[in-house]
């Protein structure tokens, strides 16, 4: 293996390789995968001069640390966290020079859930179906990181752009999830739809990259039973028999038999990616009727 690589010093709770995923394979049962907080992934890449399709690390709550084998430029975005290089403080949300042999540590998130670590040249694992993304549902891509694992880096692309806008996210008081009703909102009573729009929901601790689960009042169904399996989109609010909506994230199954009451537009999923368990959720119905952009 090339010496342009890093060795995992502290894998953290769940750290995966992510990029923009592998859309276009849902008909084979292959989830899209890819960064749940796509804007943070893209920004981290831009800060180190990578194309947005380059692979980064996505951490979960506790961050991670890696020892680089060569001088490398890296950046940490997404959930804000203390960043150090060999123990010395370094900026979050900015390009950081990491000398050969030094440890880059992205600490526990001060708020939010998922941080992204980009390295100049990107993580250069073998793509599968056009993507390097770890897919926890189907097992495609590199396994979640373990201590001591070595991952190759690609050749740096060149200097990053001179300036970029790095938003400093504050702790989210609540997660606002606008949704477009359908395709199966008619499986719920008027009271069930009202409950979704007005009920007090929270992010469940059972959430993961497959779906953000909720706690709250169950939605009343107008029809019982299951649908014949049908295609499930990213952002679907699927309602299993317990009546509590599950927001489908990037590793979601591509078909399913529980009704989808609404779909959250993709641009709102980055906020969901950063919502820790217990965060209050407010579902906001957008107008129904024929869909337009």
């Amino acid at each position: 293996m090339t010496d342009h690589a890093f060795c995992v010093a502290r894998a953290g709770a769940l750290t995966t390789v992510q990029d923009l995923g592998r859309p276009g394979h849902a008909h084979l049962g292959v989830p899209r995968a890819g960064a749940v907080d796509a804007p943070a992934h893209r920004l981290a890449n831009r800060l180190v001069g990578n194309p947005e399709s380059a692979a980064t690390l996505e951490t979960t709550l506790t961050g991670c640390a890696v020892r680089v084998r060569r001088d490398t430029v890296a950046a940490v975005t997404g959930a804000p966290c203390p960043v150090t290089v060999d123990g010395r403080p370094a900026p979050w949300g900015a390009a950081v020079r990491v000398p050969a042999g030094a440890v880059l540590d992205a600490g526990p998130a001060t708020h939010g859930l998922r941080s992204h670590l980009a390295f100049a040249g990107g993580i250069d694992t073998e793509p599968q179906l056009g993507s390097r993304a770890t897919d926890l549902l189907s097992g495609l891509g590199t396994d979640p990181l373990t201590d001591g694992a070595v991952l190759p880096l690609g050749r740096p692309y060149g200097p990053p752009p001179a300036a970029d806008a790095v938003p400093q996210p504050g702790p989210p008081g609540e997660l606002l999830l606008p949704f477009l009703p359908g395709p199966r909102d008619d499986w719920f009573t008027g009271r069930g739809l009202h409950t979704l729009a007005t009920g007090r929901f929270r992010v469940s601790a059972a959430s993961n990259r497959i779906g953000l689960r909720t706690e709250g009042p169950p939605l009343e169904r107008a029809r019982t039973g299951e649908l014949p399996s049908e295609g499930m989109p990213l952002g679907a609010l699927q309602v299993p028999p317990d009546g509590l909506p599950v927001l489908f994230l990037h590793d979601h199954p591509t078909t399913g038999g529980y009704p989808v009451i609404g779909v959250v537009p993709e641009r709102h999923l980055a906020a969901a990616a950063q919502a820790i368990p217990g965060t209050p959720i407010r579902f906001l119905p957008l107008r129904s009727g024929p869909a337009t952009s």
Binding site: A26, P228, G231
Partner: peptide, 20 residues
């Protein structure tokens, strides 16, 4: 279109610019 997903009684199309 990004995805065309046939199932038991449906076909899902996703990634359309103009569904109507």
């Amino acid at each position: 279109v990004t995805e065309i997903v046939p199932a038991a009684r449906t076909v899902l199309l996703d990634g359309l610019a103009d569904p109507p």
